[in-house]
Design a protein around this nucleic acid. Structure first.
Lengths: 146, 146
DNA sequence: TCCGATGGTCAACCTGATTGACCATGCCCG
DNA sequence: CGGGCATGGTCAATCAGGTTGACCATCGGA
């Protein structure tokens, strides 16, 4: 009855559920246009000096083109801006705007809030086990690819 | 360090890892064009009389339009065909072709194989806990939506 | 017999990615 | 010093796997 297909679907559903929790939490905090995917960018950007696109992409395991799209989006919405990197004329630094800093802060809070709710629902032990298991799953299967 | 964003990403990665395992397993069994998503359809179709699109969609928690696309695809590849439902002129029944039955059988085997490998990697206890936890996660968060 | 519910379909769109091609700049090595 | 590969960013096209909305024919109960 419960097959691999279900497991795969469950993973998707769990992800969607958490993402949409995060999304609505963020909306409640006054940032309805910040999407769960953006969160990782906010968290990855160096607060002082800004971060390079490529580094950001690597950090969240995304292609640089994918990160480009995110940053384009965030820039259009006024959360970040790109400034030339003084140390490397090829590079640009992605920096948070004032608004971006506010959003990033709320984002961190929203994530903590969702995490806490999830921990409460599942219990600490199961929550930790889940994270551990998922990590192992992704790693081991990733090896299998190679 | 490990935040909600990571958990969400891990869910995605684990899903991708399993799906691609299934995919390559299926390819090895001679059905390279059967995608993991198709598996659920194969498993859902009633072997005797065929199944309605709507029922199939519901079964895998997909919109009927989404299922339509799957079935269109599978039909174009010769795995299923649509026949009119003798009991309801509105409805059509999705039935497996001979080729579809072969693919479905391999599909079941592939899923078992991936499941067994995963169980071995994780250990039975953690595997079962994972499934349980995911189910709970999806359910509880789903309630929160409403 | 009428009318709302149901089954299937078309079309448009979205998210979150991917690969491939490019170009400017950086930097090591001979 | 110069040549050439590596790196950072960008554009474009494409994909998977969905979504919502609008429609129409048929069904079936009041």
């Amino acid at each position: 009855m419960t097959s691999m297909a279900d497991l795969i679907r469950q993973l998707l559903e769990a992800r969607r559920a958490l993402a949409s929790e995060l999304d609505s939490d963020l909306a409640d905090r006054g940032f309805p246009d910040v999407r769960p995917g953006h969160a990782a960018v906010f968290l990855g950007v160096d607060r002082r000096s800004g971060s390079r696109l490529t580094d950001l992409a690597e950090h969240v395991r995304l292609t640089k083109q994918g990160m480009m799209a995110m940053v384009d989006d965030l820039e259009a919405r006024g959360y970040v801006r790109r400034v030339p990197d003084p140390n490397d004329a090829r590079a640009k630094l992605v920096r948070l705007t004032a608004r971006g800093r506010r959003a990033a802060a709320e984002c961190r809070r929203a994530m903590q809030s969702v995490e806490q709710r999830t921990r409460r629902q599942l219990g600490d032990r199961r929550y930790d086990t889940l994270r551990e298991t998922l990590e192992e799953l992704a790693e081991l299967e990733l090896e299998a690819e190679a």
